[in-house]
Amino acid sequence: MDFYGINPSVLIASLMAASVPIMLAAIGELVVEKSGVLNLGVEGMMIMGAICGFITAVETGSPFLGFLGGALGASVLSLIFVLLTQVFLANQVATGLALTLFGLGLSSLVGQGYVGIKPPATGAIPFGPLADIPFFGRVLFRHDWMVYASIAIIAGVWAVLKFTRAGLILRAVGESHDAAHALGYKVIRIRVMAIVFGGAMAGLGGAYVSLVRVPQWTDGITAGAGWIALAIVVFASWRPWRVLVGAYLFGGITVLQLNLQASNEFPIKIPVEYLAMSPYLITILVLVIMSSGRGRASLNAPASLGQNFHASH
């Protein structure tokens, strides 16, 4: 059941894999922003995750430890952001941008000796006969474990934010840090934990790029994925499942446009320029549609987003 040379089940399976890095980075950033902190350093943390994960996987021979190393490396980088914005109360936008620049440079330095090396392969999970089910077998049961882990993380974040006390406290800190402080919650401590979590997720996403999606290290390998992740958080209006939708939509259009270009059989020839810009165009369109109308409240942005907190009383 091909449509003009494009097999829908293969297409869906590819978009699921292609979306993993931005989805992980976006869900991490969502938690950070839910706590009232705007960290624009996602790109820098992702690329640090990519190189740290790559080095760990190559040195230990284990992709699993690689992902762990990637998460760890990016969290360490996010601690710089913590120090500057939560301790020294520096401007979050400027610090985030600086973190990206720093991450890009540092990863290039650290990665000097790792160009042209192949990392250990992250194989697909064997589902046995399930993988042979027509259509669904290809779509659902032939992925590497990170694809499933990323969906599980989305579900986990959603459940924690919606059903647990910890999630409620996190949201309270993001909506009104003064009120949360007055109630006795440790605003800074909660935000630090959120930022480190965000760093770990960005690191996982970066490691997925260097270990699975493009299994190699080259300078600048994430090539702007962190910025897309930031846009997807707004796109999702700070709701976890919408992050998944946004990431699949973006990843899906990216994969689809490449497939349309590669297919010589597709009857309607859409100019390549439009295809190439389509993922970004549609992201912008959805952002515009969602932010029109009822203002900031409809966007669901945390009320204290981007504001520093200092316990002066």
């Binding site: 493009v214 190699q216 994430t222 090539a223 490449l258 497939n259 390549v272």
Partner: peptide, 22 residues
């Protein structure tokens, strides 16, 4: 496939993947 970039490893890999799948 026109990638509209000289250097974007993830996009280049995706382009190769789309071709292989077809």
């Amino acid at each position: 496939i026109w990638a509209y970039t000289w250097f974007d490893p993830a996009k280049e890999a995706d382009a190769a993947k789309a071709m292989i799948e077809q």
